[in-house]
């Protein structure tokens, strides 16, 4: 019925991957969309590998709409094993592509919250 709410998005929303708080994370970053009440926190553990820092483990916690939460779940799978530089290089288009759907202007902020929050985390 609704192309935005496809099976894989609903699956990630109802059964999120890597959704847990991480006690021993190296960095923690919270991001919010105040206007709609989306609230997301990333936890990342880094490791030295091949001369660069890579994501050894990543998880998230929070609550919000299906786009922000399924987006975080999908992005967490992308992030694992990536170097800091590779995470920094992720674009808006990369994030939106995960949804395989046309995200309208009104919902873009929801869909991009996981990416904007992980970019904030890199600044720490």
């Amino acid at each position: 019925m609704d192309s935005l709410y496809q099976e894989h998005i609903l699956d990630h929303y109802k059964h999120p991957r890597n959704k847990r708080e991480m006690d021993d994370a190296d960095v923690v970053q919270r991001g919010k969309n105040v206007s709609c009440g989306d609230d997301l926190t990333w936890y990342v553990k880094w490791e030295e590998k091949g001369g660069s820092q890579r994501v050894a483990d990543v998880s998230f916690s929070g609550y919000g709409c299906a786009l922000s939460q399924s987006g975080a779940s999908m992005l967490s799978l992308v992030l694992k094993g990536k170097t800091k530089e590779e995470v920094a290089a992720l674009t808006r288009e990369d994030m939106l592509a995960l949804f395989h759907a046309d995200i309208g202007h009104m919902r873009e902020k929801c869909a991009l919250l996981p990416l904007s929050t992980i970019k904030e985390l890199l600044k720490q």
Partner: peptide, 13 residues
Amino acid sequence: FAHPHDVAEILGR
């Protein structure tokens, strides 16, 4: 069962 944004989006559709 759903966030207000999702409710409004689906209602709108």
